[in-house]
Amino acid sequence: MKPSTRRMKVRDEREGSPWTGLGAVLTKEMADHLTGVRVLILEMLVLLTAVGTIYTALQNIRPGSNNEFLYLRLFTTAQEPLPAFVFFLAILVPLIAIALSFDSINGEFNRRTLSRVLAQPVYRDALLMGKFLGGLLTLTMVFSAIWLLIFGIGILRLGVPPTAEETGRALWFLLGTIFYGGIWMALAMLFSTVFRSPATAALASIAVWAFFIFFWNIVVGIVAPLLGPQQITTLEQLVAAGQLQMILTRLSPITLYADIATIMLQPTERFLGFVLPVQLDRAIQSPLPLGQSLLVIWPQLTGLIAATILLFALAYILFQRQEIRA
């Protein structure tokens, strides 16, 4: 077949670097995000929840009562009626990520800037990658600022400096938060490639988000027993059924993120999910060192990153194949 072999050849011999122009796209995207009203609103929202939850957390934390990991407790302490900051993060981060990228591709298309940009000496790779990295870097900047703010408030109100252990844990949690955002950003970007209308892309992304937030646990509760044996008679079967349920819940990025938050912010948590009392026998009830905690959530962390890359790759393939003309 002449045409197909020719096309293969073309792919192989593609001239120049696919990243030509990446820097230009990246700086423009970040400038757009950081000067845009949309990001400003989202920043205010996160800032408000951060200050609110940290303030109530501070009311609960009395220096002297239990001096360990005060800064981490800023993230996790809740007081009625306000949940802890991590809870808000689990809900808000996806929304922010979606808001940053639901119109990234179809917006260019509808503004008719796509053909003009792609007529410049850059590959589509650079455009998509630049948009994604621009969004991710914006997320990184926003959350780094929030983290610093939390630590700043902490220093002022608690009067003790954070330990290296706390700082390390907070940084790993920051990394987890960014890639938790990355998943949703890649998802929204995927939808913005598939759907021509930004509103549809936004709705589809929000639908996935709502599904995982509200319904995934219910779905798992229904599906897991159907997949396992009808009647559980032995201990092994019980363990197997429990593990199956856990695997299913972990398909949700929200579960993965919650796991990371639990282990990283509460050093005394040593296990995730299903543990038999036998396994806890002779376990010492003391906080884990950072390295050990990291080992516990390593699969979750890499899972988040892998899912982000996978979704991005899918968006990438679809975008490469898309016709540019209206």
Partner: peptide, 22 residues
């Protein structure tokens, strides 16, 4: 095969050219 070389030297003005309005 050499889209970058072509696009570096050729200017293209699409119909209904669009800009970033902001």
């Amino acid at each position: 095969r050499q889209p970058l070389s072509v696009k570096k030297r050729v200017g293209y003005m699409p119909d209904q050219v669009g800009f970033y309005d902001d």
